[in-house]
């Protein structure tokens, strides 16, 4: 973990949208405030602070104008980590990769002194830590996540319980195997959240190399299917997976969310860089 944190040291989470809600911080908000970023002039109205009157403009126009500056808001980052049973699959393991990425994002947030809320989701949404600030809290989070188990199925509608009182970025790290996961994008969009979906997949999910006679067991439901695996089945399966990825990308694009495919044999730092868009 230490080596990984060193690798991502240079990355930075920066919101693309102006922040609407939340406390005072160092990112551009939608309102007017006391920052150093000049916004414009407006005519003086009774009740305005006379200290804000631009006297130089008065000498030229003989009219009273006040200077306006942009507001600065605090960035709030939500990290939502899928810990359903299906995440505990593959070599390298999807859960290991997802947890590393989630902790990496948390570290970046805490390092740049922004506010962080960390959730895990399966049958329920569990808040691990809320409104954390400062790097000193990272060790605590690391310990909490060290032995976190994977179980149950993913119910994305539980994300409706997510605290949306502050504007910011929500990172969702999941294998997206629940059918109606797109609904949650609509919900988060309404609350002005920037959304980054990190889609975690194992290489063996993309290109399966299995025995001929198979008894497949669903990791989440325990259901069984017997199947004769051959090259035709393999080709058909791979086609389905490709379609699934394309469909997920389309869902994200249409909702202005960012989609990042995280195959577990990729370097975590590469995935994280894509997620915070340093390459763009």
């Amino acid at each position: 973990m230490e080596a990984f944190l060193k690798e991502i040291e240079g990355l930075k989470i920066v919101p693309k949208k102006m922040l609407k809600k939340g406390g005072r911080g160092s990112y551009k908000g939608t309102g007017r405030g006391d920052s150093l970023d000049f916004y414009g002039h407006r005519r003086y109205v009774a009740g305005d602070d006379i200290r804000k009157i631009d006297w130089l403009a008065y000498t030229r126009t003989e009219e009273l104008y006040v200077k306006e500056f942009t507001e600065e808001k605090e960035l709030h980052v939500n990290v939502v980590l899928d810990n359903s049973a299906s995440m505990d699959y593959g070599d390298p393991n999807k859960w290991e990769m997802a947890r590393t990425l989630a902790l990496g994002l948390s570290y970046l947030t805490l390092k740049q002194k922004d506010s962080l809320s960390f959730y895990t989701i399966n049958d329920d949404l569990i808040c691990i830590q809320q409104y954390m600030r400062g790097k000193e809290n990272f060790f605590n989070l690391l310990q909490l996540m060290e032995n976190a188990p994977c179980r149950g199925t993913t119910v994305f509608t539980k994300l409706m319980q997510l605290e949306t009182g502050r504007s910011g970025i929500t990172f969702v790290i999941s294998d997206l195997l629940e059918k109606n996961w797109s609904e949650i994008l609509d919900y988060l969009n309404v609350y002005g959240q920037e959304i980054v979906i990190i889609h975690s997949l194992a290489p063996s999910e993309l290109t399966p190399n299995l025995a001929e006679e198979l008894k497949l067991i669903d990791k989440e439901t325990g259901k069984i299917r017997k199947i004769h695996f051959n090259s035709t089945v393999r080709a058909s399966y791979m086609k389905k997976i490709r379609e699934f990825i394309a469909q997920n990308r389309e869902i994200c694009t249409s909702r202005e969310a960012q989609y990042v495919l995280a195959v577990t044999d990729m370097l975590p730092v590469t995935i994280l860089a894509r997620a915070v868009e340093v390459f763009k």
Binding site: S86, M87, Y89, L177, A202, I217, K219, I227, Y237
Partner: peptide, 16 residues
Amino acid sequence: QVVEEQVPSLAFWDEV
């Protein structure tokens, strides 16, 4: 010989 294999989801396999 039938080999047991755990998969994250049967959804794709059912379609196949």
